[in-house]
């Protein structure tokens, strides 16, 4: 969906008025650009939805923005629900980055995420990187992808006894608790290596 500036600018102007609570008739260039990005991000949300449903009904920029905004709100609600469902059983296995990002960081996202005036900003630095982390994603799309990755990784890790996971991590590096290492990836690498060694008949002492 490509829209002309004449269609987008009135939406940005309306956002600017709301952003300033009607108390200012002007904003800085930087603020105006942020609001334009907000409009484009919101409309893009509708484009993603339309692409997934192979639907391309012609709509005005205003209609696209309003529909995109509803989709964003719905996505935030779904992510919040998914997080609330995951967090009681979440285990960081002692890794500080994992704990800080998921347990401390993500609630702050839901508290401060600005779906109207700055939806493109996902606020968090996401120091703990999931296996399929996509740095190109932004805003709620990044958080949704991150949550999905975290849920999948937790599901994978729960297949092993907790003590086994800890043992693997400590054997890899006794300081794993303070390193930005992906726990699931490490577990997967070690498991694959052991499986490969078992198939190849190699014993732990390196002999065959």
């Amino acid at each position: 969906m490509q829209y002309e500036m004449e269609e987008l600018v009135p939406i940005v102007a309306e956002l600017a008025k709301g952003y300033t609570s009607g108390e200012s008739s002007s904003v800085s260039y930087e603020q105006a650009e942020q609001l334009m990005q907000a409009v484009q991000y919101t409309i893009h949300e509708l484009e993603l939805e339309s692409a997934s449903r192979a639907v391309s009904a012609p709509v005005t920029a205003r209609q696209a923005y309003d529909a995109g905004y509803q989709l964003l709100c719905d996505k935030v609600r779904r992510c919040q629900a998914a997080y609330n469902q995951m967090i009681p059983e979440f285990d960081a296995y002692g890794n500080e980055f994992y704990y800080d990002t998921v347990v401390k960081g993500l609630p702050k996202f839901f508290l401060y995420y600005d779906v109207r005036y700055n939806p493109q900003d996902h606020l968090l630095t996401l120091d703990y990187v999931t296996r399929d982390f996509d740095p190109q994603l932004t805003g709620i799309d990044q958080i949704e992808d991150y949550l999905l990755g975290t849920v999948q990784e937790q599901r994978y890790l729960k297949k092993f006894p907790r003590s086994q996971v800890i043992a693997v991590l400590e054997q890899w590096n006794s300081d794993y608790r303070e390193l930005p290492v992906n726990v699931a990836q490490l577990m997967q690498d070690v498991t694959r290596q052991r499986d490969a060694d078992a198939v190849g008949g190699r014993r732990d002492d390196g002999t065959e």
Binding site: A13, A16, A32
Partner: peptide
């Protein structure tokens, strides 16, 4: 002035007020 100050007006101008 708006250009020099890197500002943009989006509604009724403040000058009238």
């Amino acid at each position: 002035t708006l250009k020099a100050q890197r500002r943009v007006e989006f509604g009724a101008s403040a000058t009238e007020r």
